[in-house]
Write a protein that binds this DNA or RNA. Structure first.
Lengths: 334, 334
DNA sequence: TTGTACGCGTTATCAA
DNA sequence: TTGATAACGCGTACAA
């Protein structure tokens, strides 16, 4: 009556019975640990029977026995941002070195459509990327945890990128180029990284009373930025340089400037964040603060593995780089 | 000596010992099945002790006992394409209704950086999206499998979108508008979906000897498209309408056209695929073949759940829609 | 060279 | 209202 009767999976014991050996022999053979222990003929027979019967290992049982699942979760706010593809790539690469596979779970808070049901899977650890600490607490139920791109949670190993320094580099370069009216297009998100950037901007201009500053909070999409900055760029006291919290936001700024007939890098200088592939595709190419996303993922796994090894959780802050391109130039003469 | 000595996890048995009850009582309480069976005082005591000792369930043991993990894997070619975010959203929503959590795994073949190590986790099923059948076979080792956006594998339940019909709709509309020189910018990828689109395009123009056709294979990025189509749009026999395999590719076409001083929707009509958010952000808004990506995910889970229920695997082909916008218009007069 | 026996931590059945 | 007890399928120490 039960489904189990109909679809019962083939177990190692089943294989053993058919092959006429014990279950432990099957286990040895299938794990390649039969070298010099199990006779070649037995190895061949067991392998053939397992193949024929369609045996596949029960991972739950294996994990229970081993006390580990070999899988870690990379929790991200959303899948609709290719930055996390880079983080995963780095994490997966480093994970492979430790026999750790990495699956991705979009928590979904940013998509507005409520949060997704967290899978109740067996995990050796969780790496939470760019998420508010309270969301993270929800996600990780006691599993070893590392937080990426957020340093707001106490007592949890964190890997961050020095976005504040990145902001300072961009700002200083613009000041060097003579800009005195500077805007910061801010992502309207509560993420730690954006708070840091805002603070660094405020700090950088705070000591300079000769600088006219505009802070422009915007939704994340290029279209929203375009609409929001259009009036700003049309005004008489328009900024001659704009720093955007994201390359895609910068592309919205490009649209607005082009719509107003303004030249990027001449009439208005633009800087982005991330140095995503899109930065090079824009015309002119976008100056951007390059974030070491892959290394962020790598270091996340490193910290997680260290955690299991009992290492103390010391914070890591990765350096960033300012990539200068044609989207910035000297401040226009008045 | 072993790590297990040092970091042994708290088990239900440990909780039972401290709380002075049996392990089965702990299980009953912690699973909320103590209603009317376990006394309130015991429930409170057990809950408190579990909390205090930091008990967390061993999912591997639970899954072994239950014969299921409550987790399915959504395998995608890459994370660097937000289309899969929509697929996941649909799948996760439907999965939640069946107590099925969905994690994502980017196989990585498309990123060129080789494939990622497949996590050896306990899975109730795999949903493979937009991937060649041979890649899929590699990924799914006997686990119940559903394939999305690909109908090339025999014997595997598949959910597809009727991209051929979408192509036909776009093509017919352009013909209606008087276009007689039409190009198809094709994604240079072996995916089934792109093959279908190419065939549908060829089929649609095949019966019309009065139509001048150009087939332009391109890498997926906007910049690549821009560079590739620039000479095409400059030629004397330039197409008056272009269908692109992706909205982002269409944005590359926008760049090229603008660079040549051509008007989108006037000098050249443009159609995309996906109807991604970016389609509305472009200027002018991009006409596009809207793909039901969320429903694709939903139907994928549906098929997977049906599979476990022993349902026959019958293929599903979801209808698509052509969304007309200002990027297309009547063919320019010669 | 192979088999026996045990335990991983949980859920569920039954008896008390 | 609670407690023994038996699986679930696997890996491995140890016996044969």
């Amino acid at each position: 009556m039960s489904e189990k009767e109909v679809f019962r999976a083939v177990t190692a014991t089943d294989v053993a019975r058919v092959a006429g050996v014990s279950q432990s022999t099957v286990s040895l053979v299938l794990n390649g640990k039969g070298r010099g222990r199990i006779s070649d003929s037995t190895v061949r027979r067991v392998t053939a029977v397992a193949q024929r019967m369609g045996y596949r290992i029960n991972q739950s049982a294996r994990h229970l026995r081993l006390g580990a699942s070999g899988t870690a979760l990379l929790a991200v706010p959303t899948l609709a941002n290719s930055a996390f593809a880079a983080v995963h790539a780095g994490a997966a690469r480093r994970g492979a070195e430790h026999g750790l596979g990495l699956v991705v779970f979009p928590v979904g808070a940013e998509d507005g459509a409520g949060r997704f049901l967290l899978p109740q899977q067996a995990l050796d650890g969780i790496i939470a990327c760019s998420m508010p600490a309270e969301t993270v607490a929800e996600v990780s139920a006691g599993v070893p945890l590392v937080i990426l791109d957020d340093a707001s949670a106490a007592g949890v190993p964190a890997v961050t990128m020095d976005v504040a320094a990145g902001m300072a580099m961009a700002l200083n370069r613009l000041l060097e180029l003579g800009h005195r009216r500077i805007a910061h297009v801010r992502a309207e998100r509560p993420a730690w990284t954006f708070v840091q950037r805002a603070r660094a901007f405020d700090l950088g201009v705070g000591t300079r009373p000769d600088i006219a500053v505009q802070r422009i909070p915007c939704p994340f999409s290029p279209a929203a930025v375009r609409d929001r900055v259009m009036p700003v760029l049309s005004a008489a006291d328009r900024p001659t340089a704009v720093i955007c919290d994201d390359d895609n936001m910068a592309s919205g700024l490009y649209s607005a400037a082009m719509g107003l007939g303004m030249g990027i890098g001449t009439d208005v200088s633009v800087v982005g964040f991330n140095d995503a592939p899109v930065a090079l595709q824009m015309i002119p190419p976008l100056a951007s603060v390059r974030l070491p996303l892959e290394e962020l993922g790598e270091q996340g796994v490193r910290a997680l593995v260290g955690l299991r090894g009992g290492e103390p959780a010391r914070p890591v802050n990765l350096p960033v780089e300012f990539v200068e391109r044609e989207s910035i130039g000297p401040a226009p003469r008045e």
